[in-house]
């Protein structure tokens, strides 16, 4: 029986089922965490009626969304309108397949894991654009245009940072990247200042780009509810909207996981003890949720940026700085 489970296709299938379950549960409870966190920041209790301290709130929300009719407004491109939520949900699920949660806990140990994540990650933009376009709503179309220009702008510094990381690590295998950072927090890529003194800056650029790519506040131009009602999701109701919502959180998980792996040593223990096995997975989750909490914290603290200063930030600051770090890393690797 156990032998059957370790056959490659079955193993991958089981991992995928696990990942989907993890993503769905994670998205549902991240919503609760977000609402609780927002409540804490805004000096109010947050959801606290369903179950103990609102623990059943995501279930109630899920049932409500599932029970709603999936409406396709007249005049929309009904195929694209229905396809967009699927397309927005699939990429983060696939990305999570190559994310190592622990030394051996990975669905698919790809050699080109990093490339895989980024190539699938960029489908998200197209899905939002199609969803907005197919909705046949002016707010949604404005939002789609914004999403595309925003993501094009932020893809560049993000990939420049990733190339820098690639030069430092020399591999695209995510597990290998984490293994290189073993032995305490001073071995993490974040603090490898002898490779490149700008390494912490690189991390900040990555984090900002991650916020922008996932359309999170203060860069939530796609949703921008005080300007564009709900942006690309204006015409979606019921589970169509629910899937977009879950995908947003799944994308945050993917983004924060990548940040953890690339910069914060993945499953490695920060002090060298209690590492390996399930401890590794625990360390990974601790780092992951610390980053996710930061994302939530930022959302409830800052107002939204203006669209043009958002693009200026990318084209005039982030891209030049990331180019400089790239060149500096190359030069330092050549000299040292």
């Amino acid at each position: 029986m156990m032998k059957f489970l370790t056959i490659e296709p079955v193993r991958v299938l089981l991992y995928l089922v696990g990942i989907i379950a993890f993503t769905a549960a994670n998205a549902a409870y991240l919503v609760l965490a977000e609402r609780k966190g927002a409540g804490r920041i805004q000096r109010r209790p947050g959801p606290n009626e369903a179950g103990w301290a609102g623990i059943l709130q995501p279930v109630a929300d899920g049932i409500k969304l599932l029970a709603k009719q999936v409406m396709v407004p007249p005049g929309t491109d009904s195929l694209l309108f229905r396809a967009a939520p699927l397309m927005v949900m699939a990429p983060p699920l696939l990305c999570l397949a190559v994310i190592p949660f622990g030394d051996t806990i990975v669905a698919c140990n790809l050699n080109i894991g990093l490339l895989f994540v980024f190539s699938f990650g960029s489908i998200n933009v197209m899905a939002l654009m199609l969803g907005g376009w197919a909705s046949r709503n002016k707010f949604a179309i404005i939002s789609s245009a914004r999403v595309v220009s925003q993501n094009v702008a932020y893809e560049i510094p993000m990939l420049l940072v990733v190339i820098t990381m690639l030069m430092v690590t020399g591999t695209m295998n995510l597990g290998e990247i984490v293994r290189q950072q073993a032995g305490g927090f001073w071995h993490w890529n974040l603090l490898k200042v002898w490779v490149n003194p700008f390494m912490p800056v690189t991390f900040i650029i990555f984090f900002i780009c991650m916020l922008a790519e996932t359309n999170r506040a203060p860069f939530d131009m796609a949703e921008a509810e005080s300007e564009l009602v709900a942006g690309a999701f204006t015409e979606y109701g019921g589970m169509g909207f629910g899937v977009f919502f879950m995908a947003e959180y799944a994308n945050i998980v993917v983004g924060c996981s990548l940040a953890t792996i690339l910069f914060l040593g993945g499953w490695q223990s920060p002090i060298g003890v209690l590492s390996g096995g399930w401890f590794g997975a625990a360390w990974f989750l601790v780092k992951l949720y610390a980053l996710i909490f930061t994302v939530i914290w930022i959302r409830w603290t800052f107002p939204r940026t203006q669209f043009y200063s958002l693009l200026n930030l990318s084209w005039k600051i982030l891209i030049p700085v990331s180019l400089v770090t790239l060149l500096l890393t190359g030069v330092m690797m050549k000299i040292l």
């Binding site: 927002a38 920041i41 805004q42 000096r43 109010r44 506040a217 203060p218 939530d220 921008a224 509810e225 005080s226 409830w300 603290t301 800052f302 107002p303 939204r304």
Partner: peptide, 11 residues
Amino acid sequence: LDLGGFTPILY
């Protein structure tokens, strides 16, 4: 709220 900052209104 118009500018997308949700917290100040509660304060």
